[in-house]
Amino acid sequence: MSLIRIEHVDKSYASRHGTISIMQDVSFTVKDSDFLAIVGPSGCGKSTLLRLIQGLDRPSAGRIYFQDRPVDRVCKKMAMVFQSFALYPWLTVSQNVAFGLEALGWPEERIGPQVERYVSVTGLDGFQEAFPRELSGGMRQRVGLARALAVEPAVLLMDEPFSALDPLTAENLREEVLQLWRDPQLPPDAVLLVSHNIEEAIELADRVIVLSRRPGHILAEVEVTLPRPRDRKSAAFYELTDRVYSLITAGGQSLATAPAPEGAGRSGEAL
């Protein structure tokens, strides 16, 4: 079943120097219980794509469907996790987690238990009354995650969620996100992860969509069939990583974020 359908989406902005095209003709689908990663060089419109999908922004052309209905306003069945956490410094951990539920108009007596549940799911027990500034980066992102999960979204949108964390913390949090996604008792059904970290994408996702540099278009959709838990040091993992690197470098001549690949890349055909 297709949960989200993206059809021929273009996005461009008007600027002082004329129109800047962010992405061109992007089409793909997200299935139920998909873990999809979108990778690409910086500036290719990955984050913009995520915002278009939730309806925070409108595509310049093309359509986006959620459960076969066009997305024409902010879709509350999806929840976003931000790179910068986007926690409200004046709200406690509990209040931050309750944020989305209040927006949905939940009655107070139901909000309490729901917040408690997701606070403990994300390992924040004992920090309910803390303020975000008192927490470490990893703990803050847990709050961001709990806030998103608490509304029990069908789709979890993650915009570079681990980029602002130190490598060790990021690794732990990645595993926990994977566990949450695989737990049938817990939301979400599908996860959409935007990342510039190719290893991260391959470690987590079932499918990796590779975008070119601006204006972003899809270079390839890479199926990741490696068994979980995935070993970053295995030859298969390395080969896959190398392939995606090559795709991006070949498709986008110069690349700011990714290190240079070892061998010459293949051209960006669909795989």
């Binding site: 925070l56 306003r73 902010v74 509350k76 929840a79 976003m80 986007a86 409200y88 989305g100 949905l104």
Partner: peptide
């Protein structure tokens, strides 16, 4: 934006 994603108005 976080407020937008939850449709807080």
């Amino acid at each position: 934006e976080a407020a937008d994603t939850f449709g807080l108005g």
